Simulated scan of single mutants.
Amino acid sequence: MTESVDVLIIAPEVPAYAHPGDAGADLVSSESVRLEPGRRALVGTGVRIALPEGYAAFVVPRSGLATKYGITIVNSPGTVDAGYRGEIRVTLLNTDPTEAYDIAPGDRIAQLIVLPVPRVRFIPVDTLPESVRGEGGFGSTGYQQTTGSNA
């Protein structure tokens, strides 16, 4: 079992894990919002946290909302830095082209994942060491298309 981290919180509803072993705790809406097709809205959660130094929280979409209704987060993952003490608000986007989506107070709208984040030192150099991937970017590994034949 992994060790737990204490996070101080002020919230009308404390984020909760739906299942043992889940990475993300559910964030719920603190307000009513109607998301029209193709529109976005900043939705409050009422949650304020104090993360320990060396940690950050990441706000990520809920897969069920994305799959069933096309609701996602515009700036996913949203980053909550250890020094931030304001309300965690979520910028939701309705990607459905025809159906509006209504959010009520208490609806699960996102997940919060808390992770350790090391402080790094950026070291300027003239060249970088070689790697297997090299400079290959988007699509550089290709894809395999299944044709259904054994040929």
Rank of each mutant, 00 (worst) to 15 (best):
V5E: 06
D6A: 15
D6H: 15
I9T: 11
I10F: 13
A11K: 06
E13L: 13
V14S: 08
A16P: 07
Y17S: 03
P20R: 13
G21N: 12
A23M: 09
A25L: 08
D26A: 04
L27D: 00
L27V: 01
E31P: 04
S32T: 08
R34P: 00
L35G: 00
L35Q: 01
G38M: 00
R40C: 00
R48C: 10
A50E: 11
L51V: 01
P52H: 04
A56N: 09
A56E: 12
A57P: 08
F58V: 04
F58P: 03
V59C: 03
V59S: 01
V59Q: 03
V59H: 03
P61R: 04
G64W: 06
G64K: 07
T67K: 13
T67V: 15
Y69G: 00
Y69F: 14
S76A: 15
P77M: 04
P77T: 04
P77D: 06
G78L: 02
G78R: 05
T79F: 13
V80P: 04
G83T: 12
Y84V: 02
R85Y: 12
R89L: 11
R89N: 12
V90Q: 09
T91Q: 13
L93G: 03
L93K: 06
D96R: 03
A100Y: 11
Y101M: 01
D102H: 13
I103S: 00
R108W: 11
A110W: 04
Q111D: 06
I113R: 12
I113V: 15
L115F: 14
R119P: 06
R119I: 10
V120T: 12
P124S: 10
T127E: 14
E130V: 13
G134I: 03
E135V: 13
G139T: 05
S140K: 10
S140E: 06
G142H: 04
G142A: 03
G142M: 01
Y143F: 15
Q144Y: 14
T146H: 14
G148H: 05
N150S: 14
